[in-house]
Design a protein around this nucleic acid. Structure first.
Length: 839
RNA sequence: GCGGGCGUAGCCGAACUGGUUUAGGCGCCAGCCUUAGGAGCUGGUGGGGGCAACCCCAUGGGGGUUCGAAUCCCUCCGCCCGCACCA
């Protein structure tokens, strides 16, 4: 009786051996073509959950498949080790963030190993290591030198209870509260460091040369938000020298301006406000400053504003229009000031209605009768009431008015982006210190490169206020000025956004121990860029845009020769709880992978996760479903181990029947056909990460092999089939495959074998089911040679009894033949258009 | 509100460039084997009708294009995701 499949024992055994043999260490400079396969690294939260498995197990299978195809695959692993949870733990439990983080990493390393993935642990990167973050500082200094890192006053989200500013991602929910304590955040103006990502806005819109999902590209393009328009100046009556600049994407509607609006925070507001309007304007500014983003976000909120008492002059027609202050105009976009064209803009229309402002039409809708508009007209039309531009189509008017503004020197064509510069300052301890010193004599002074890294002091004290301990740490804070040597300089106490760490970690894997540069350029030349990246879509506009920006910077610094960090991107879906809801502790639907690993084995968990559905689809966990995966692997185990040796070519030479013919196996070539068609299907599916259908094909193959086992298990062809089966399973179930490979007498390691190659002729079916239709309805199916020609198929169909029965005396109008697939006999009742279509 | 996606059995899902709808799995039913089995093996399983060979109807609803539609077009319904006063 065959021995039962014991996953737990097998897995421990092979993991230990692979580790000892450094089987997955990727050699630098190898004659094989390289393939850099990367999965987004994890935050060391302390436990590896099923979501990590769902992200990592299929990507491991993908990497393993590439390796078996003959590539030198680098599949590294690391930890995104800076971040707020570690600091929270310090505040709440008195554990140092470093200790907390490193303990979690130690625990997660063990859990990751249980997955049996082919990670190259010799390349591990942990971002809170000074050897890593020193290079964050180095990059920062390089950018500072080039004017790409700068300091400015900016409003940030501030938690009044914790006395700290927050990253955008730490402000949660529609109520915009602090994720730590639930207090609603307020805006506060602070001196902050920025990286000039906007300098690369145009280039970031361009995705040529990379294979990224449409969805991510669109998301980034929308986020960057390019709009083309014209920026022009308007004089303010009675304020010579005070010209307000406005931005519009509709210069064609400039003659329709009936008012102008400044954002409440616009600096000109105080200059131009008439004395008798000052009280109202100040009250409005105060109200707008207090209004939280909730109110400003809502489209439902009625647009309001106040008149400043000033009037602006339309540079195109000299018309005098009132200037308002209103918070529907944002200081952060364009110029913070707009022309109000109510007839052709929804917001301006509402505003004009509310304040009884004129709504002159300047782009006539098709068939317009000259009556007032009931709603703003946003489309293209014919220019009217626009002086010399009348009668033009509005798109042409757009260009002509822009030309005119440029000729008269009042305006210029401009492109604006929604993208803002990247605010990287965090008032937190657990991050990379920004390498800047403030000297009372010299001002802002960068830390010299030779003094890097600026290390985080380990003896920091964490107080419940949440204020960064760096502010109180005398040893860190006080510094000598690198320029004048003055003793009373202070260090910048802000640390960097952790998205900086993840912007270039893929480069560090190339040579994680490198001390002279972020990475070794020779090795980088071999490995880079990343060939395949996988991870969740939630990073579509943050990490995935930042790392593209960083790569362009690195290119401009001469560190790399390319501008895109990852050639291919795949976004996996999200694994849900058994109830179909997002997993959460409070809902109690969290699946712990360890329990399954310890009973059914890692290979089973891997197969189940890959079989559940398309990888990018995610879906609910099903505890019954995983038993199906377990059953499948049992069946494979039994099939392979029971027959191992029976048809082995070494043992069975001469004696084993060469023919695989048997009562249930009418055609010996069918046996080979099954093997080749499965290899074809599985290879193609692996290539496109369609693991679910690859596994389905393997199940079908195994089912087939069981059916013919009795007749063919003693043939040499059977041994070939077992070998192919095990090799195809190797990327999916690395431990089981290794064990079965050994039992088949294969040479260690199965993971160093080539993936089986299919023969196109053998993979192609010899016979096909020809579907016979009458008027599009299936009436019969006949087995035919796959190579049947159209004429024969047609004859066959017309002679078929069922076809005859349904044709039943009606005249035959047409016969459509798709060779090897179907014949459709069209009778006179249907259309009379005769056409023989064969694609 | 704007933009994008999705809707196939009781459930997860297959279905190539329009050509056998429902592969594979879960679940369910039956049989075998077992002291027993929530183990394993074999077979069955979209709905409706019929003793039967068979017939009819089904890819969210309705309409269209086509010899032929899950697939293409229009429309409605439902669900999901992103953006949210961006001038």
């Amino acid at each position: 009786m065959a021995e039962r499949y014991n996953p737990v024992g097998i897995e421990a055994k092979w993991q230990a051996k692979w580790d000892a043999d450094r089987l997955y260490y990727a050699p630098d400079f190898d004659p094989r073509p390289k393939w850099y396969f990367l999965t987004m690294y994890a935050y060391p939260s302390g436990d590896l959950h099923i979501g990590h498995w769902y992200a990592m197990a299929p990507s491991d299978a993908g990497a393993r498949f590439r390796r078996m195809q003959g590539y030198n695959v680098m599949f590294p692993v690391g930890f995104d080790a800076f971040g707020l949870p570690a600091e929270n733990a310090a505040i709440q439990h008195g554990i140092h963030p470093y200790t907390w983080t490193m303990e979690n990493i130690a625990r997660m390393r063990g859990q990751l190993r249980s997955m049996g993935a082919m990670w190259d642990w010799s390349r591990e990167v942990v971002t809170c290591d000074p050897g890593y973050y020193a290079w964050n500082q180095w990059f920062f200094l390089k950018m500072y030198e080039r004017g790409l890192a700068y300091r400015a006053l900016a409003p940030v989200d501030w938690c009044p209870k914790d006395n700290t500013s927050l990253a955008r991602e730490q402000v949660v929910g529609d109520e915009r509260v602090c994720e730590r304590c639930g207090t609603p955040v307020i805006k506060k103006n602070l001196e902050q460091w920025f990286l000039k990502i906007t300098a690369y806005a145009e280039e970031l819109l361009d995705f040529s040369g990379v294979e990224w999902p449409e969805r991510v590209r669109t998301l980034q393009q929308n986020w960057i938000g390019r709009s083309e328009g014209v920026e022009f100046g308007m004089d303010i009556e009675g304020h010579p020298g005070s010209s307000v600049r406005v931005f519009t994407t509709r210069p064609d509607t400039v003659y329709g301006m009936s008012f102008a609006v400044l954002a409440p925070e616009h600096p000109l507001v105080d200059v131009i406000t008439a004395p008798d309007r000052r009280v109202q304007v100040d009250a409005y500014k105060f109200k707008a400053a207090r209004a939280s983003d909730i109110d400003r976000l809502s489209t439902e909120t009625e647009r309001d504003g106040v008149f400043t008492g000033a009037n602006a002059i339309n540079p195109m027609n000299g018309a005098r229009v009132p200037v308002f202050v209103a918070d529907y105009v944002l200081l952060t976009y364009g110029t913070g000031a707009i022309m109000g064209v109510p007839a052709h803009d929804v917001r301006d229309f509402d505003f004009a209605r509310k304040y009884d402002l004129p709504i002159p039409v300047v782009v006539a809708p098709p068939g317009w009768d000259g009556t007032p508009l009931a709603a703003p007209f946003l489309g293209d039309g014919t220019m009217v009431n626009s002086g010399p531009f009348d009668e033009l189509s509005s798109p042409e008017g757009w260009q002509r008015i822009a030309d005119a503004m440029e000729q008269r020197g009042v305006g210029t064509r401009t492109v604006h982006y929604r993208l803002h510069d990247w605010l990287i300052s965090r008032q937190r301890y657990w991050g990379t210190p920004i390498p800047i010193i403030y000297c009372p004599v010299c001002g802002t002074v960068p830390v010299p490169v030779d003094d890097l890294p600026v290390e985080l002091p380990m003896d920091a004290e964490f107080t419940p206020t949440g204020e960064s301990p760096l502010k109180q740490h005398a040893g860190f804070l006080h510094a000598r000025c690198p320029r004048c040597g003055g003793e009373d300089a202070t260090r910048e106490t802000d640390t960097m956004d952790t998205f900086i760490d993840s912007s270039w970690y893929q480069y560090r894997y190339v040579s994680p121990q490198e001390t002279a540069a972020p990475f070794d350029s020779t090795r980088g030349h071999y490995w880079l860029p990343v060939d395949q990246y996988t991870g969740g879509v939630e990073h579509a506009v943050l990490h995935l845009m930042y790392t593209r920006f960083w790569t362009k910077i690195m290119r401009d610094l001469g560190l790399v020769e390319f501008g895109e960090p990852m050639l291919r991107l795949f976004n996996q879906g999200v694994i849900l709880g058994e109830d179909g809801e997002k997993m959460s502790k409070s809902r109690g639907n969290v699946v712990n992978p360890d329990e399954y690993v310890q009973t059914l084995g890692a290979d089973t968990v891997r197969v189940y996760l890959m079989f559940i559905g398309p990888w990018d689809g995610g879906g609910p966990w099903n505890s019954r479903g995983i038993e199906g995966a377990s059953r499948f692997l049992q069946r494979v185990w039994t099939l392979v181990t029971e027959t191992a040796g029976t048809g082995n070519r070494e043992q069975g030479t001469g004696k084993a029947p060469r023919d695989v013919r048997g009562p249930r196996l009418p055609d010996p070539r069918e046996f080979e056909h099954w093997k080749h068609k499965t290899i074809k299907k599985v290879s193609e599916d692996f290539e496109g990460f369609h693991f679910n259908t690859a596994i389905a094909a393997l199940m079908e193959y195994v089912n087939y092999l069981y059916r013919v086992k009795d007749e063919s298990a003693r043939s040499p062809a059977w041994a070939d089939a077992m070998e192919a089966l095990v090799l195809m399973l190797a990327p999916l179930t690395p431990h089981l495959a290794e064990e079965m490979w050994e039992r088949l007498g294969g040479r260690y390691s199965v993971h160093e074998q080539r993936f089986p190659v299919f023969d196109e002729a053998a993979a192609a079916a010899e016979t096909a089911t020809l579907v016979l239709q009458v008027d599009g309805k299936v009436r019969d199916r006949v087995q035919v040679s796959a190579a049947i020609n159209a004429e024969d198929a047609k004859t066959l169909a017309l002679q078929n009894a069922k076809v005859k029965q349904f044709v039943d005396g009606h005249e035959i109008a047409d016969v459509i033949v798709v060779p090897g697939r179907l014949v459709n006999v069209v009778t006179g009742q249907a259309s009379k258009q005769a056409s023989t279509q064969a694609e």
